[in-house]
């Protein structure tokens, strides 16, 4: 069993677990029951459960199809995915971390700080030289976007709770 096949099996199993979790934990707790409803119109839980049924069923099929590949010795279908080196993955992870932190702090620190710092970090992730220029570019971009959106689009960015 080669690495590809093992990975495919794990993925399919993970999807199945996800389906089970939603079906047995999330649906009962998160779908409000209304006081009284017309049975004719199907319950609010119908379509979510239908979706889960499909997901669960298909994940089982995936597992079976992978097992079939295993038994017959045929390599699984090539997936569309791109292979990445470890340093690339780390960089991507860094970018993701930046975006998560951005979301969490923008309400508190305000658009100016968050955006300038965020863009700077993203630039640094790609190329560690010339940090000065990067900060300047980040600030200039932030300013430009702020002006365009504020005056042309009339969009008000978060000021930042610490400034209130």
């Amino acid at each position: 069993m080669n690495a590809n096949l093992a990975r495919e099996l794990v993925i399919a199993a993970a999807v199945l677990v996800f389906a089970l979790v939603v079906q047995f934990i999330l649906i009962p707790t998160q779908i409000e029951q209304s006081v009284e409803y017309d049975l004719a119109s199907l319950s609010p839980a119908f379509f979510p459960e239908l979706a889960i049924l499909i997901i669960g069923g298909l994940s089982i099929l995936l597992i079976l199809s992978n097992i079939r590949h295993l038994v017959k010795g045929i390599p699984p279908e090539q997936t569309d995915e791109v292979s990445l080196t470890l340093s690339e993955e780390l960089r991507i992870g860094g970018a993701m971390a930046v975006s998560i932190v951005y979301y969490l702090v923008v309400d508190y620190l305000g658009f100016w700080i968050t955006n300038t710092v965020g863009v700077t970090i993203l630039l640094i992730i790609q190329d560690r030289r010339q940090i000065w220029r990067q900060i300047l570019i980040a600030a200039a971009t932030t300013l430009g976007i702020y002006l365009f959106f504020f005056f042309v689009m009339k969009v008000h960015f978060p000021i930042g709770k610490i400034f209130k």
């Binding site: 305000g110 700080i113 000065w132 900060i135 600030a139 000021i159 400034f163 209130k164």
Partner: peptide, 18 residues
Amino acid sequence: LKKFGFFTLIVCVVMGFS
């Protein structure tokens, strides 16, 4: 860096002034 940061901070405070 310090100057720039300070400048940005001032700008932010002014922007956020209510």
